[in-house]
Design a protein around this nucleic acid. Structure first.
Length: 269
DNA sequence: CAAGAATCCTGTCAGC
DNA sequence: TGCTGACAGGATTCTT
């Protein structure tokens, strides 16, 4: 969102092209006409949704899904890019394309005054970096739930914006086994989860932010946060926090709700 | 109601 | 080199 805001806030979209009728869901009819000649008045984020406000009281609700990205270039890209579904030509010559090979992303239009009433946003839980996400709120949301705590933290109604990587990393930092039933966590354990989530997200945002500085590079560099993973994607490797002797038994991987989980079998109990 | 499975789609990588 | 299957940062909808 910040990368888009730098190039779009206050600018006029000279021309917009929509190359596909649908991503995950049908795109709004006439989206290209609505975006063409629109001025972007501001940005906001809610959970994993980017909200781009246009003059005329419409807000574009954008989700990048699993494979979506915004390709930002000064003028046309040096070589054709596959899976460019929406292209915005900004008045100052910059070009912003929604690229999403798997097409799990989505775009909706919603009245600016009713953003949070949209069906995709209405049931979202608290923002994890806000003070509405605290141990008391999380305890209330986990109470009575027999689902694994990993699955509960992925539920956007409990806390909004955590994905698979960050849940794995947060539960490692909180020293909690992802397979534990949500309701089985003690108050002390829940009190560890909250700062673990916030630390992981803050570090990831800071590391991802470093990629925003070179987003103009034609090769589309990734963020840096993948180098900070302590358990995710590290099956069989020693975790970083186990004491040296005896050595860490190694990060284990297992499936929960169809997603890969990673954990240290010694530290996470 | 809750929980798990299936689903949408393409790209990448490991193994043969 | 080419084929196959597993798997991938998500979230809804269907089934059990």
């Amino acid at each position: 969102m910040r990368g888009l805001a730098v190039r779009l806030e206050g600018r006029l979209i000279r021309h917009a092209q929509v190359h596909r009728p649908a991503l995950r869901w049908a795109l709004p009819p006439g989206l290209d006409r609505r975006l063409t000649a629109a001025r972007v008045t501001g940005f906001r984020r809610r959970a994993k949704y980017i909200l781009m406000r246009l003059d005329g009281n419409d807000t574009v609700l954008l989700h990048l899904g699993m494979s979506g990205r915004m390709a930002i270039t000064e003028g046309p890209p040096p070589a054709p890019v596959a899976h460019e579904h929406i292209v915005l030509h900004v008045e100052d010559g910059w070009r912003i394309a929604l690229v999403d090979p798997r097409r799990f992303g989505s775009v909706h239009l919603v009245g600016t005054a009713a953003e949070d009433e949209h069906h995709l946003l209405r049931h979202l839980g608290p923002e994890p970096l806000s003070d509405r996400f605290d141990a008391a709120a999380l305890a209330a949301s986990l109470a009575g739930r027999r689902t694994p705590v990993k699955v509960a933290l992925l539920d956007q109604r409990i806390v909004a914006g955590l994905g698979n990587i960050y849940v794995c990393e947060a539960l490692y930092r909180a020293r909690i086994d992802p397979r534990r039933a949500a309701a089985s966590l003690s108050a002390a354990e829940i009190a560890r989860v909250v700062p673990a989530v916030q630390t992981v997200l803050s570090e990831a945002i800071a590391a991802g932010g470093s990629s925003l500085r070179d987003y103009v590079q034609p090769n589309g560099e990734l963020g840096m946060f993948q180098h900070a993973w302590q358990v995710y994607g590290r099956e069989g490797q020693p975790c970083p926090d186990c004491p040296g002797a005896p050595p860490c038994p190694g990060v284990v991987r297992f499936t929960q709700a169809g997603r890969s989980s990673f954990a240290c079998p010694r530290l996470q109990t």
